[in-house]
């Protein structure tokens, strides 16, 4: 569908709704966007399901937020199904980064090996404090963020609306190898935090 075909109903739609529509995955947009714009335009014309303009707008926004969340989750899950090896390699790369970051301090803690800290190898002998802090943030928050991001494709959200919204998260096995990585990453991450806390008490 080209832009000239969509111009008229598109003009009638609230800018926030238009913005939300842009967050749908590309594939979804190519297939359904034209129809969605027409439908929203019709809803606004007919006052469905609310005659009150503000209530209707809030209803559409909440519905689109849940719809686009699910569409993006579905898209990522499908991408992973098509090419799981990319995700596995990504996981291994993150694991390798963790090992690189944490091995010196772990080896000092357990074996009293005097290994040079990873940040010194990365940033030089006298790094600026801001870079050390930045690396610390990446080192501590990175694993958690990576875990959350990598978990996304193996989670499906079922949205069922019965007098309101309820959300149910359901883990789904996509690949044994990938699941194995998630478990290993979680254990490693948790283990690291436990050691870190224990070493500071």
């Amino acid at each position: 569908m080209n832009s000239s075909q969509l111009s008229e109903p598109m003009r009638e739609i609230d800018p926030l709704i238009k913005k939300l529509l842009s967050f749908y995955p590309t594939e979804f947009k190519q297939r359904f966007m034209g129809e969605m714009i027409l439908t929203i335009s019709d809803m606004q014309r007919d006052g469905l399901p609310n005659r009150n303009g503000l209530a209707q707008k809030i209803f559409i926004i909440i519905d689109l937020l849940s719809g686009l969340t699910q569409a993006n989750f579905d898209q990522r899950r499908q991408e992973m199904k098509k090419n799981p090896i990319v995700w596995v390699i990504g996981g291994i790369a993150i694991l390798a980064l963790w090992v690189f970051m944490f091995t010196p301090s772990l080896s000092r803690l357990f074996f009293n090996w005097q290994m040079k800290d990873s940040y010194l190898l990365l940033l030089g002998e006298n790094p600026a404090r801001v870079f050390v802090t930045l690396l610390d943030v990446v080192g501590y928050l990175g694993p958690l963020l990576a875990f959350i991001l990598l978990l996304v494709p193996v989670v499906s959200i079922d949205l069922q609306k019965e007098e309101g919204f309820t959300m149910r998260l359901k883990a789904r096995q996509v690949s044994v190898l990938y699941r194995g990585f998630i478990i290993a990453a979680t254990l490693l991450s948790l283990g690291w935090y436990v050691i870190l806390i224990a070493s500071r008490i």
């Binding site: 027409l38 439908t39 809803m43 719809g67 699910q70 569409a71 609306k161």
Partner: peptide
Amino acid sequence: HGYRIMQLVFKNTNGRFRMGPGTLYGTIK
């Protein structure tokens, strides 16, 4: 078509089940 489905669902359920465009087209997909 999509909007007609939305209207019929609203009518068939006496307005108890309200389906927005996100739910409708996500489910259709």
